[in-house]
Structures are given as C-alpha cells and as structure tokens.
Amino acid sequence: MKKDRRIDKSKNALKDALILLMEEKEFKSITITEIVHLANLNRGTFYKHYPTQEELLNELIEDVLSDLVSSYRDPYITVPNFDVGKLSSSSVKIFDHVERYSRFYTIIVNSNVLPGFQNRICQVLKELIQSDLIKLMPNPEIDCSLLSSYNAYALFGLIIEWVNGGFIFTPHQMADQLISIISYQSPKGTAETAKGTNSTG
C-alpha cells in the first residue's frame, strides 16, 4: 500500500509543534488547541491521527527510540566480522541521530518535561550492547550486564555533554572524539579488549 505523504506531513507538523510547546511549558498543561494552532492544522486533523495529546507524545517518543536503535546499529548490522577497533567516524551515526532530534534531546536533558526518559534511552542502549555486541567480549571475568551498563551510560554522558555545550561540535567531530576515547581506553596490542569496548553508535 502506497504511503500517503500528506499524512506524514500532518503528523510531523503536530510533532514539531508539540516539541516547540514542550520547550516552553510542562506537557500536562499543553492543549490540543495549542498544538493544532502552532501546526497550522485543525482539530479534526489531530483527532484523525491521535485520540489524545498523550498518543501524539508516545508516537514521537517511539520515533526517537526507533531512529536511535537503527542509528546505533548502522556501523555493524551488515558487517559479518565487526571490529570496533576499526571504526571510522563516517560510520558512526548516533550523533547524526541526536542532531536530527536536537530540540527533543535538549528538552529531555535540560528540563523535567519527560522524567525518566534519560534512563529509558540508557536502557535501550544497554539492551542493544548486550544483545548485539557483548558476544565480542571474550573475557569471562567481566560481567556482561555491568559492561553494557558502563558503555551505555558513558555514551549517553557524551550526548549530554554535547547537548549542554550547545552542540558546538559537529556529529562528525563527536564521532571522532568517541573513536579516540575508545582507542585511548583500549590497551595497545589487545584487539580482543578493543572489541569489548562497545560504546559505538
């Protein structure tokens, strides 16, 4: 079935309007009237797609998380023998993802509009690392859950620093920094350990 671009356009306008409003006020105080007015749409269009403001927010969140997952996996999902030690900055896409949703990330880092969402992002990253990349870690002395948590929160810490700094670096520069940090933390001459440092994106 062919996708209706008009539907996507309307939905995106409503999501953009919601983000703009969340920059100014708490979500629970945002009305449908405010959303449609800012999106230059009518209430009928809103209700055609969403029964409530909460449903609009939920779809926005799912968009962000879905794009986060695909961006994180981009460097390795089609690579048979992935080696994090051979990552290039051009293959790291997670910072492009954050830039795409920069206003959303600024909101969740700098306000309490979505309490707990930072932890939700870290949990998604942890699950990705544990399911996709932990198999590259050959050291049985390191607990897989602790290792994935360490990498997930370290990566999100870089994102928070980038947001708080006003995005002064480009996504490419952030990818360069991530790779440099991974290389710095990995003991020289131990490729297996380098593979175990899985803060990639």
Rank of each mutant, 00 (worst) to 15 (best):
E34T: 01
I77Y: 15
K195G: 06
K11Y: 07
A175R: 09
V113G: 05
L147I: 00
I107D: 03
M22L: 08
C122F: 10
D4M: 03
K195A: 07
T106G: 04
N112F: 14
I159T: 03
P171A: 10
F167H: 05
R5G: 02
N42G: 10
F46G: 04
I181E: 11
T33D: 15
A17F: 01
F117Y: 11
Y101V: 00
E99M: 14
Y150N: 07
I19H: 04
L65Q: 14
G157M: 04
E24T: 03
N139W: 14
I121C: 10
T78R: 13
F169N: 00
G201R: 05
A175Y: 06
E26Q: 10
L125E: 12
G44Q: 14
E127C: 05
E54R: 13
I7Y: 10
L178K: 01
L114Y: 07
K93I: 07
L60K: 02
G166N: 10
F167L: 03
E24D: 08
M22C: 09
F156L: 01
I107P: 01
S91Y: 05
F169C: 04
I160G: 03
V36G: 00
T106V: 04
T33H: 12
G44P: 05
I35R: 01
K25C: 08
N139K: 02
K3E: 15
P115L: 12
L18Y: 05
I168E: 15
P51W: 14
T52V: 10
L57D: 06
L114D: 08
T31A: 05
E141Q: 12
S89H: 13
G157S: 00
K9G: 00
L178Y: 04
T200F: 09
S91A: 15
F156Y: 12
E62C: 12
A152M: 06
L147N: 07
I134P: 08
I179F: 08
T197Y: 15
K126P: 08
D4E: 12
L158H: 08
I181N: 02
R5H: 14
S180N: 12
A194M: 06
A191W: 07
M22I: 07
P75G: 09
A175P: 04
I108G: 07
A39D: 06
Y72T: 11
